[in-house]
Amino acid sequence: MEQSLRDKLDGLDTIVGVLMGGLAVQLHPIPGPVPVVQVSIEGREELPIYVTCSDSQILCLCYLWNDSEVLAERRTELLETLLDLNPSVPLSSFGRVGERYVLFGALALNARPADIAEDIAALSDNALDALEALSEFLQ
């Protein structure tokens, strides 16, 4: 499985770099029970994208913030904003995994590296935009 994810991501760093206007992109596998590859984009190292895959799909995830960082008095407003915003964000959706808010994109298992790269570039841009737009809800 690990090997198959790496095969799928073959050449991804180069394609993402080209898509993002020549930025340096690095891939690092993350050890663990499920295949995960970290994608670091030059200048945005604090907001890496993680790619993982199950038997049915490829998921690209960007962790935005933790529940504990949300201003308690504006929590409901933030959640409603995320729901409202969701359909407008191209290729990415908001979600939460445990304590962490995420922006993610899902692709079919047979997606080509170019499709995955496009999703990652969109995800990175969307995450940065979303973080900036929604930082008023955070401590």
Binding site: I30, P31, G32, P33, V34, V36, Q38, Y50, T52, C53, S54, D55, S56, Q57, L59, L61, Y63, V97, G98, R100
Partner: peptide, 19 residues
């Protein structure tokens, strides 16, 4: 697919936190 995707998302998050 729902079960395995949920599992892989949560396990991946765990791996990333551990890492």
């Amino acid at each position: 697919a729902i079960a395995k995707t949920t599992e892989s998302v949560y396990k991946a998050t765990q791996s990333i936190s551990d890492n």
